[in-house]
């Protein structure tokens, strides 16, 4: 059990923890707009943490002489590419959904209405 595998395990389980929190969040929050907050966290943080863990684990024994480890480095770069794509695409998707909800006319939940 090297120190790298400990880091990988902690990152991966933290990512899964945030995924579960995000899923609980979209079930528990009271209205559509606050559910988007939970979903956005799920996409942004949990995906990045878990993918980083896998990319780190993939280059665990990197050796400059071996072709195989260069191929592993390429696979890790591809995983980083997924992270970058998610970070560009997920806010755009959230923005599109929010705007659609405003145009369709879904009412936001507000504290004042509840207290009245």
């Amino acid at each position: 059990m090297s120190i790298l595998s400990v880091i990988v395990a902690v990152l991966l389980l933290l990512g899964v923890f945030f995924f579960i929190i995000g899923a609980v969040g979209i079930v528990r929050f009271p209205d559509f707009y606050s559910r988007l907050h939970a979903a956005g966290k799920c996409d942004a943080l949990a995906t990045a943490l878990s993918l980083m863990a896998i990319a780190l684990f993939n280059i665990r024994d990197f050796d400059w002489a071996l072709f195989q480890s260069w191929d592993n480095l390429r696979v890790s770069l591809k995983i980083v590419l997924i992270i970058l794509f998610v970070y560009v695409a997920s806010p755009a998707a959230t923005h599109a959904i929010t705007k659609a909800a405003f145009i369709v006319g879904i009412e936001p939940w507000e504290k004042r209405k509840r207290n009245r």
């Binding site: 945030f18 929190i21 609980v24 969040g25 528990r28 929050f29 009271p30 209205d31 707009y33 606050s34 907050h37 939970a38 966290k41 942004a44 943080l45 936001p108 939940w109 507000e110 504290k111 509840r114």
Partner: peptide
Amino acid sequence: ASLEIAYIALHPRMLDIIDP
């Protein structure tokens, strides 16, 4: 910010904390 939202999502009286 994610830690904060996680605290809110797991809080039993969530509706008292949030104020959209």
